[in-house]
Computed example of a mutant assay.
Amino acid sequence: MKAGQNSLLHQKWILGLIVWAVMESVSYGQGSVSSSAVTAKPVGLAAEGMPLDSMTFDFNRDITVQLIPFDDMFKLALAYSPAVKFEGAVANSQLSAYQLAKLQVLQNLTGFVNYSTGNQAILSTGTNATDQLAQISNGYRAGVNVVISLHDLFARPQQIRLAKANHDATLERKRIAEIYLKRELYNLYQDLILSQRVLQIRLRDDQASLAAFRIAEVELQKGKITPEAHAFNSNRYAETRTTVEQAKTQFIKNIYALELFVGVPIHQLKRD
């Protein structure tokens, strides 16, 4: 009877230890630390060595509900993208070249205005110098001089069409840059979502591995398992911790890659 009571107490004690290990692993997986651990961190770092601004995102919440909608993000990327700005400037320059080609024909058109006064005689045979017919009338003179060459008649239309084609080509190249920008932004957005899901899976695996490691420590002290079995659990826990840190690093890298690609600080991409 006494042996049965001891066995029951031992089972309850093991069950309580399992619950304690799971609760501790859950708290560890969510990134909670003691106040003494926080004060020991440098000013520029938060818990687990992550930058402070990356901690504004909750690992356990879907990242899509923490970020602004994708369409709004794409509008910001369009406004700040150097590639799109460059193609827009090239398109504007080609538009100016097209307009210049249409107006360049005006260089063959000249005008003049002058004014004459005084007694200006024309020396002509058989006329008297004092004859009024030999005098040039005084006053203003105005006129237009137009010169049309064969180049203007046959080559100028081709130059205008060439300038228009160059302008249309730059507009299409700008659209290509916008499509490329949207595709790359979507890939980064999906990579961020995937990295968060992988991190959540790794955290759950880490919690289970930590619970098994704690139980193995107790059983090793009681002599129920061999040191080799405990070493296996310890190695398993070390591997899961490594994968968690790798997944966490990849998640943070994807956040900053998105920030650099859009061109605005990460807090502007976060929902209010």
Score class of each variant (00 low, 15 high):
residue 1 M to H: 08
residue 1 M to L: 06
residue 2 K to Y: 09
residue 4 G to E: 12
residue 10 H to C: 02
residue 12 K to D: 08
residue 16 G to C: 00
residue 16 G to T: 00
residue 17 L to P: 01
residue 19 V to C: 05
residue 19 V to R: 01
residue 21 A to Q: 01
residue 22 V to H: 00
residue 23 M to G: 12
residue 27 S to G: 12
residue 28 Y to W: 13
residue 30 Q to G: 12
residue 30 Q to I: 12
residue 31 G to N: 07
residue 34 S to W: 11
residue 39 T to S: 14
residue 41 K to P: 00
residue 41 K to Q: 11
residue 42 P to A: 06
residue 45 L to W: 04
residue 48 E to H: 14
residue 50 M to S: 09
residue 50 M to H: 13
residue 55 M to G: 10
residue 55 M to R: 10
residue 58 D to W: 08
residue 62 D to H: 09
residue 70 F to M: 14
residue 71 D to S: 14
residue 72 D to K: 13
residue 72 D to I: 04
residue 74 F to G: 02
residue 75 K to H: 08
residue 77 A to V: 01
residue 77 A to G: 06
residue 78 L to A: 12
residue 82 P to V: 04
residue 84 V to W: 07
residue 87 E to S: 07
residue 87 E to D: 08
residue 88 G to P: 02
residue 90 V to F: 02
residue 92 N to R: 15
residue 92 N to P: 00
residue 93 S to W: 04
residue 94 Q to E: 15
residue 95 L to N: 07
residue 95 L to S: 06
residue 97 A to F: 05
residue 97 A to M: 04
residue 97 A to Y: 05
residue 99 Q to C: 05
residue 105 V to I: 13
residue 105 V to A: 09
residue 106 L to W: 10
residue 107 Q to N: 03
residue 107 Q to Y: 03
residue 108 N to K: 00
residue 111 G to F: 06
residue 112 F to G: 04
residue 116 S to P: 01
residue 120 Q to C: 09
residue 122 I to R: 13
residue 122 I to V: 13
residue 126 G to L: 02
residue 126 G to N: 12
residue 128 N to G: 15
residue 128 N to E: 14
residue 132 Q to Y: 15
residue 136 I to L: 15
residue 137 S to F: 02
residue 139 G to L: 03
residue 140 Y to N: 09
residue 140 Y to E: 10
residue 141 R to K: 11
residue 146 V to R: 00
residue 147 V to W: 01
residue 147 V to F: 00
residue 148 I to M: 13
residue 149 S to G: 10
residue 150 L to W: 03
residue 151 H to L: 04
residue 151 H to V: 02
residue 152 D to W: 01
residue 153 L to I: 11
residue 154 F to T: 04
residue 155 A to C: 03
residue 155 A to Q: 07
residue 156 R to Q: 15
residue 156 R to G: 11
residue 156 R to I: 06
residue 158 Q to P: 00
residue 159 Q to I: 04
residue 160 I to A: 03
residue 160 I to F: 06
residue 164 K to A: 15
residue 166 N to W: 02
residue 168 D to Y: 07
residue 169 A to M: 06
residue 169 A to Q: 10
residue 175 R to E: 11
residue 178 E to K: 14
residue 178 E to I: 11
residue 179 I to W: 13
residue 181 L to H: 02
residue 182 K to V: 04
residue 185 L to M: 10
residue 187 N to S: 15
residue 189 Y to K: 10
residue 190 Q to M: 15
residue 190 Q to H: 15
residue 190 Q to V: 14
residue 192 L to G: 00
residue 195 S to R: 11
residue 195 S to Y: 09
residue 200 Q to A: 11
residue 203 L to G: 00
residue 203 L to H: 02
residue 205 D to R: 13
residue 206 D to N: 13
residue 210 L to D: 05
residue 212 A to D: 11
residue 217 E to L: 04
residue 221 Q to R: 04
residue 222 K to A: 08
residue 222 K to N: 08
residue 234 S to W: 06
residue 235 N to K: 10
residue 239 E to N: 12
residue 245 E to Q: 14
residue 249 T to V: 04
residue 249 T to I: 02
residue 250 Q to G: 15
residue 251 F to P: 01
residue 255 I to S: 07
residue 257 A to V: 08
residue 258 L to G: 12
residue 260 L to H: 12
residue 267 H to K: 11
residue 267 H to I: 09
residue 268 Q to M: 06
residue 268 Q to I: 05
residue 269 L to G: 08
residue 271 R to N: 05
